[in-house]
């Protein structure tokens, strides 16, 4: 596959004005507000940082237990505990925006109006490069997944956010959605890119006590266990999508990330792997570069959708 190269180009264009120095971002909810990772890595190396889901008002999240390990993965039921959009802007953003890495604000609302208000508050805030709309969280009673599996509701949320901001709008899909039609629906509503997948609803039972392990009974499955499902979702989305796709699900190594890119993703997000190694994303970037050199691939964008 081509002659080995000394220098390769990792830059990607995620559409809607969002240009990244490399295709590796950190996934929402697994990277805090970014600043927590400063002691462990150079945040400036990341393609983008996606922060924990933000809502209009602070949320306290679900009662414990909130996490449990499963084979090659974990279940979580955090319930979108977050400090709220105001506190994020005031307390976290000033430090975060000093790094040469775009910051993507993941947002959540219980109503369409709440999504719109959070987006409006972030619009024009220096240091925020894009908004990722979470319509796919399985761990909240209202909002979240109820929007993400219903075509009309999903389109309403995206339309409202689109109108509220000039920022790049990324919409995050659930694997439970009917992928192809959902892709078209959110595109028509004006999304600039689509990220997928969020966690897969799952459940674990403590057989000794015959009780659910998580306080909320069900939770969201993440980690290497979900990667094949996620790759398939991206591959399906790529058949119809006109906007760039961002692949998420179980990525630990560069090779995992490349599966998504070859299946049709322009960029990727790293989630649970940040818990195994806080600098996992940097390892993925380096590994990707190495792969491209070995295979004589000059531009990473040439790999997108290159499945033979």
């Amino acid at each position: 596959m081509g002659i080995p190269l000394k220098k390769v180009d990792l830059r990607v264009d995620a559409g809607g004005g969002l240009k990244l120095k490399n295709p590796v971002m950190t996934a929402s909810g697994t990277f805090g507000y970014g600043v927590e990772f400063e002691p462990y890595m150079d945040l400036g190396r990341l393609g983008a940082i996606v922060v924990k889901g933000l809502s209009l008002l602070p949320r306290e999240g679900n009662p414990p237990p909130r996490t449990t390990e499963t084979p090659c993965g974990m279940l979580n039921a955090i319930g979108l505990q977050n400090i709220g959009v105001e506190a994020f802007i005031r307390e976290k953003l000033p430090r975060l925006k000093r790094f040469k890495t775009p910051v993507i604000a993941n947002i959540f609302g219980e109503t369409v109006g709440e999504y719109r208000e959070v987006a409006r508050r972030l619009d024009g805030e220096p240091g925020v490069a894009a908004i990722e709309i979470n319509i796919s969280c399985p761990n909240v009673k209202k909002g979240g997944l109820s929007f993400g599996t219903d075509l009309r509701e999903a389109a309403r949320v995206v339309t409202a956010v689109r109108k509220a901001t000039r920022l790049h709008v990324m919409t995050k899909l659930s694997p439970l959605a009917d992928i192809k039609v959902m892709v078209r629906a959110v595109e028509d509503a004006g999304t600039d890119s689509i990220s997928l997948i969020n966690t897969i609803p799952g459940m674990a039972i403590d057989v000794e006590r015959r009780r659910p392990v998580l306080s909320t009974v069900t939770g969201g499955l993440s980690g290497p266990a979900i990667r094949p499902v996620a790759v398939r979702c991206v591959w399906e989305a790529a058949k119809v999508a006109r906007v760039p796709l961002i692949g998420i699900g179980g990525i630990v190594t560069a090779s995992d990330a490349l599966e998504f890119i070859i299946a049709g993703a322009t960029a990727v997000q790293i989630g649970t792997a940040n818990f195994l190694d806080p600098s996992a994303s940097v390892g993925v970037i380096d590994g990707m570069e190495d792969y491209m050199k070995r295979h004589g691939v000059k531009k990473v964008k040439n790999l997108t959708g290159s499945l033979g």
Binding site: P64, T67, M74, N76
Partner: peptide, 11 residues
């Protein structure tokens, strides 16, 4: 899961 206060799991 994380040990550094970011997953919000050990509440």
């Amino acid at each position: 899961a994380c040990g550094i206060g970011v997953c919000l799991g050990c509440a």
